[in-house]
Each structure stands twice: as C-alpha cells, then as structure tokens.
Write a protein that binds this DNA or RNA. Structure first.
Lengths: 139, 139
DNA sequence: TAAGGTACCTACCTTTGGGTAAGTGTCGAT
DNA sequence: ATCGACACTTACCCAAAGGTAGGTACCTTA
C-alpha cells in the first residue's frame, strides 16, 4: 500500500501524464476507477449528489440494489474518501451518507457522463438497431 | 429491443430527467453505461481518443488486455455506435478502429473522470491509508 | 404478542467477466 | 518448409461480482 504511494511520488506529474497510468497493469488508479465505475458505485454517486441520504433511502432510490451490495459499495467509496458515513448513536440506528469534497468532484464528472448517455439514449438505440439490421439481415 | 425504444419515446425529456432513468432497474442506459464503464471499455476510449489505431496497436497500448476481451469490448462499443471499425480487404488483414462523433462525446467525459482520479490519486491513497489506520489500530 | 423498521452481517449459491491456449487462413520472410 | 504477423474465433476454466435468505439487537406500533 504505502510502497505504491511512495513509488508514485517519485514520478513527476508530467511523467504520469505521459505514461497514461491507467493503461498500466497494476496501477492504483485502476482500483479506484473500479470502485467509481462499478455497477452500484455510479448510482450511489448520482443519488448522493442530490444530498445526504440514509441507508434505507438509498436502498429505495437505487432500484434493484441488494443490501449486501449497497453496504459493500458504500464501504468501498468511504475507504476511497468519496463518501462520508455519519452514524448517530441512537436506537433504532440512524446513519447518514453524504459526499465528501473529493466525492463531489468525482460525482459531477460521473453525472456528466451518465447525463450524456441518458440524453442520447434514443440515438444510441437507433444506431444499435441499424447495426443489428445490417448484420443480421444483410450481413 | 424496439419495444424499449418506443416506450422511451413516450416520455418527455423532463420526465426522463425527473425520474433519473439509470436508477431504474431495466433501463437501457444502464446497459450502455455498462459497456462504457467496463474494465476495458474505459481504456479503449482513452486510447482511441488519441487517434485511429489498429487492433494490434490497441493490444500493445492497453496493458494487460487479452485478445478475447479486446475483441469483445470493441464489438460492444461498435454496436453502441461509439467505435467505427474499418476493415481494409487486404491480406494480411488490416483493420482500423476509431471513435465516431458520439464516441468522441463519451470519450471526453470518460477522460475527465479518469484524469481527475489520476491527478488526485495521491490524496486518495493518503485518505485510504488514514482510513485504514483509524480502523485497524484505533478502531 | 407478533410484526415491522433500523442498519447492518454472514453463509451459500449462481452468474458473468475475464484469462488461457489453441486453431484459422493467407501472406512474406528466413 | 517453417515461422511469424495479422485479426480474429472457439472451447474451457476460474475468480470475482452479485443475489438470496436468514440472523442480530433494539425499539415502536398494532
């Protein structure tokens, strides 16, 4: 863990850019990216961008997520420093999840990607249909 | 396939935004997003953004990808209309891959997300270490 | 007294993403 | 005559992602 971090610090910013780190096999960016772009990670970012949510609220807003996966995803994002977990020591338990500052930075970028896809989903599906037609009937 | 498209067309843009489509279970955006944010999909976008590449060039630039996965990823992105495959009918085969217009739109958004993570990877790893320290030794 | 909400955890099982290795057909180089 | 490059495909296998179901501890409501 720390070795990786120290090895990275020996590279200058420009070097890192030139090398295009993510394309390298065992780079740490790839692991973080995996958390962010995971099936449920994306949806957690989108939902938390709307504000603080309780666990059960997330579960209901994110259609189809299981408790296990939600817990796991939130934990991974908390570890990455993107999500802040605030537990109020009351009974029954009350836990709130929100985005940290860096979480918000990531969230806006995730949102822009997802938004583009959502806005253009019709033309994408049309392209898909045309592709299928060309390859099934004519191909 | 077509049913999904037609069902979507019955929604207005604002309705789609309000509902936050991706959070719904069986929505087509989720499938497209899966292709884009897949392990190798992201790296294909980043690499093709630098320009047209041949199959073997992609294989060498994207460290760790297998032929099978590269083929599969390229095919999925081609079907989504993000990647253009141009086969020159010569022997030995010569095939070029490039981004379509919509592919470029997606690529810039993918790049912004990945870039942010790469630039901030050090502080992310630091946060990770602190989290681990707090939860292993003190927690 | 039983049911349900709160935020989880654990064990078990299935699905799928992804890796490995071999094969394809044609050509040019050794 | 054999090897390697090219752009794949196919079959087989494994590990990880993810789902299901049940349990926990405590409280409120019916």
């Amino acid at each position: 863990m720390n070795n990786v971090k120290k090895a990275l610090e020996e590279l200058t910013l420009t070097e890192k850019f030139r090398q295009g780190n993510v394309r390298l096999n065992a780079c740490p960016s790839r692991n973080v990216l995996k958390d962010v772009t995971s099936r449920w990670g994306v949806l957690v970012f989108l939902t938390l961008q709307q504000g603080t949510h309780r666990y059960s609220e997330l579960r209901h807003k994110i259609n189809g997520v299981s408790e296990k996966m939600l817990t796991q995803t939130l934990h991974a994002l908390e570890e990455d420093g993107f999500v802040l977990r605030t537990a109020h020591p009351v009974i029954p338990p009350h836990v709130e999840y929100s985005l940290t500052e860096s979480g918000k930075e990531v969230a806006v970028r995730v949102e822009e990607l997802v938004n583009w896809i959502e806005v253009n989903i019709n033309s994408i599906l049309t392209a898909k249909d045309e592709y299928a037609a060309a390859h099934n009937e004519a191909g």
